[in-house]
């Protein structure tokens, strides 16, 4: 074959249908996502908005109007928001020092601290709830010790808003610590040493160098914590007060005890909408992370 023949040979085009193969590959997971998540959400929203009347289905905001005018429902929502916000603050207050210690400590004790911090990850929520009842509940271990020492009993957090707060903070420590340690991994030793070299003492170092550099990690932690705590059920159900109650137990009770599924679904949609807001916040944080790492 001559050189000329080689030169005029057409370049073979990329096989068609590459895009279709890609779509087929993602079809199954996307289909499952649509069937198991998107469809129930859509169906739930429609069920709360559409009522059957004598003349057929009609659009109605009746359940939402009831929720936002009912003092008890609002008290439950506020309690849930309050517990979530308090837990988020407490988790950061507890976990940030632990994460800072794990990131910068060079002693062997760090491994022990890490083991302790991650321990709650391996304890199921229901076991944790009953352990807390046996420890902090009326006539629990703490009371027995205080009694033996001749001291008055503690005001038990069991069945008060403080109960789920303690349980949820304990339960969320491992994930929060792990996410913070991962975020702190982006702060190089040299960046810290350079700040110390410039004269920064520990507090200035934390405020001016470390916190700004883990800003995105903090946002991710906050989003995850809020999502996890806002939709919690087991710990608020077992440890929390009967009234007001957090949204998880409230939904369950409306559905089974009050037997008002439409109202329970409305509560779920409102809870979902608030969580979706934090979810959007989380996605935005991730997008910013990626943008910053380019």
């Amino acid at each position: 074959m001559s050189d000329a023949a080689i030169a005029v040979r057409p370049v073979r085009a990329a096989p068609r249908g590459g895009g279709l193969t890609g779509l087929l590959l993602v079809f199954l997971p996307v289909g499952l996502l649509a069937w198991l998540i998107l469809y129930p959400i859509l169906r739930a929203v429609i069920r709360t908005l559409v009522v059957q009347t004598g003349t057929g289905p009609a659009l109605s905001l009746e359940t939402y109007r009831f929720f936002f005018t009912d003092g008890y429902s609002l008290a439950n929502l506020w309690l849930t928001l309050w517990v979530t916000a308090l837990c988020a603050v407490l988790l950061l207050a507890v976990c940030l020092p632990i994460a800072l210690y794990l990131r910068f400590a060079k002693s062997r004790i760090a491994a022990l601290v890490q083991g302790l911090a991650l321990f709650p990850m391996f304890v199921p929520s229901v076991i944790l709830a009953y352990a807390l009842i046996r420890t902090l509940g009326p006539n629990g271990a703490v009371d027995l010790v205080l009694n033996a020492a001749g001291l008055p009993k503690i005001a038990s957090p069991y069945l008060t808003p403080a109960g789920p707060v303690i349980g949820l903070v304990w339960d969320n420590i491992p994930l929060t610590v792990l996410m913070l340690v991962a975020g702190l991994g982006n702060v190089s030793d040299n960046a810290v040493e350079a700040a110390r070299d410039a004269g920064a003492r520990p507090f200035a170092l934390l405020r001016h160098i470390i916190l700004p550099q883990i800003g995105n990690a903090l946002l991710v932690v906050l989003s995850f914590t809020v999502l996890s705590i806002f939709s919690a059920f087991t710990l608020p159900y077992v440890l929390g007060p009967a009234s007001p109650e957090m949204m998880g137990p409230f939904m369950q009770r409306t559905f089974t005890d009050v037997q008002d599924p439409r109202m329970a679904i409305t509560q779920a949609v409102i809870t979902f909408a608030i969580c979706a807001g934090f979810g959007a916040f989380y996605v935005r944080s991730i997008a910013r992370n990626r943008e910053a790492s380019r």
């Binding site: 190089s188 040299n190 960046a191 040493e193 350079a194 700040a195 110390r196 070299d197 410039a198 004269g199 920064a200 003492r201 001016h208 160098i209 700004p212 550099q213 800003g215």
Partner: peptide
């Protein structure tokens, strides 16, 4: 004496600049 109190200044191999600050911010920090 810790580094923050020594009359020394170090330049690191990795530059160790603080990416959340401007050039002037980095220099003015100390």
């Amino acid at each position: 004496m810790p580094p923050e109190k020594r009359p020394t200044a170090m330049v690191f191999q990795s530059h160790a600049l603080w990416s959340h600050m401007s050039v002037a911010g980095n220099i003015a920090f100390g």
